[in-house]
C-alpha cells in the first residue's frame, strides 16, 4: 500500500519539482515587478474569486437538490453536471461562445435587447471559469450532504423551523467542510483555467489575459519568463488554498 502511494505522490509532485529546479530565481524579483505580470495576477485573483462566488451561489442549491430532493431523473442531472469536466476546456469555450457569443443562441438577444456583449470582457473570464469549476463544487457539496445525518434536519423541522431556516442554520453548518473543500477546488480550477478562457474571452492585457494565458504567451518568446510566471501562479495558489482550507476547516470535528 505504501509503495504505490509514494509513487502516486511522486507522480503528482515531481513535475512541479522540475519547474522549481529549472526556475531562474534571480529573475523572479524583476518579473514580479513587471506591470503586465501584476496586472494579470490581479485579474486572475479577482476573476477566480468572483467565479468561486458564482459557483457557491448556484452550485450549493444544485447540490442540495441532487442530494435531498426526490426528483425523477436525478441520475441524468448528475451526469449533466459533470459534462463541463469531461469536455476539453477549449470545447467548453466554444460551447460558451455558441450560447453567449454575439451571434449565440442567447447572446444574440443579450446584444439586441440589452446591448450586452460578453466575449472579450472580464465577465466572460468569470463565466468561463465558473463553468469549468462549478462541477467540483457540486460534487463535493453533494457528497457532504449525502454523508450528513438527515435526522438533524428532521429534528429542526419538528421544532417548527422552516425549510430555509433549517437549511441555513442546520444543514449548511453541518456540511461546511464539504462546501469549503468544494470552494477551494473550484477556486484552484478557476485560477488555472486556460482553454475555455482563451476561447470564450480572448486575451487582452488587463481585461482578459489571466496568468495561465500570460504563461502560454510567454512560452512563445521567452521560456524563462514562462517558468517564472508559472512559479508565481503556483506559489499564489498554494498560499491561497492553504489559507482557505486552514481557516475554514479548523475546529471541524474529526
Amino acid at each position: 500500500m505504501l509503495v504505490p502511494a509514494l509513487v502516486g505522490l511522486a507522480f503528482l509532485v515531481l513535475p512541479v519539482v522540475a519547474v522549481l529546479l529549472r526556475t531562474p530565481w534571480a529573475a523572479l524579483p524583476h518579473q514580479l515587478a513587471r506591470s503586465e505580470v501584476l496586472e494579470s495576477l490581479r485579474l486572475s485573483l479577482v476573476s477566480a474569486t468572483l467565479a468561486t462566488t458564482l459557483c457557491l451561489l448556484l452550485g450549493v442549491p444544485l447540490a442540495w437538490v441532487l442530494a435531498r430532493s426526490e426528483l425523477r431523473g436525478r441520475g441524468l442531472v448528475r451526469a449533466l453536471v459533470t459534462v463541463p469536466l469531461v469536455l476539453p476546456p477549449v470545447v467548453d469555450g466554444v460551447a460558451l461562445l455558441l450560447l453567449l457569443g454575439r451571434r449565440g443562441v442567447l447572446g444574440q438577444y443579450l446584444d439586441a435587447w440589452f446591448g450586452i456583449s460578453l466575449p472579450f470582457s472580464t465577465a466572460a473570464v468569470v463565466i468561463a471559469e465558473a463553468f469549468v469549476a462549478m462541477p467540483f463544487l457540486v460534487i463535493s457539496v453533494e457528497g457532504a450532504l449525502r454523508a450528513a445525518d438527515r435526522r438533524y434536519d428532521d429534528a429542526a423541522a419538528t421544532l417548527g423551523a422552516s425549510r430555509w431556516l433549517t437549511f441555513r442554520r442546520v444543514t449548511l453548518p453541518l456540511v461546511a467542510p464539504g462546501v469549503a473543500a468544494g470552494a477551494a477546488l473550484s477556486f484552484a480550477r478557476a485560477l488555472g483555467e486556460f482553454g475555455a478562457t482563451i476561447t470564450f474571452a480572448g486575451s487582452f492585457p488587463g481585461v482578459t489575459r489571466t496568468m495561465p494565458l500570460s504563461v502560454y504567451l510567454a512560452l512563445e518568446t521567452d521560456p524563462d519568463a514562462a517558468v517564472v510566471l508559472s512559479v508565481v501562479l503556483l506559489v499564489v495558489s498554494v498560499l491561497v488554498l492553504a489559507t482557505l482550507r486552514g481557516r475554514w476547516l479548523s475546529g471541524v470535528p474529526r
Partner: peptide, 20 residues
C-alpha cells in the same frame, strides 16, 4: 484598437467565422 490579441492566426480566424 484590438479587443483581443490571440495566440495564433487560427484563433483569430475562428473569432471572425463565429461573427464574434
Amino acid at each position: 484598437a484590438p479587443d483581443t490579441l490571440e495566440q495564433d492566426v487560427k484563433a483569430v480566424l475562428t473569432k471572425v467565422e463565429l461573427g464574434e
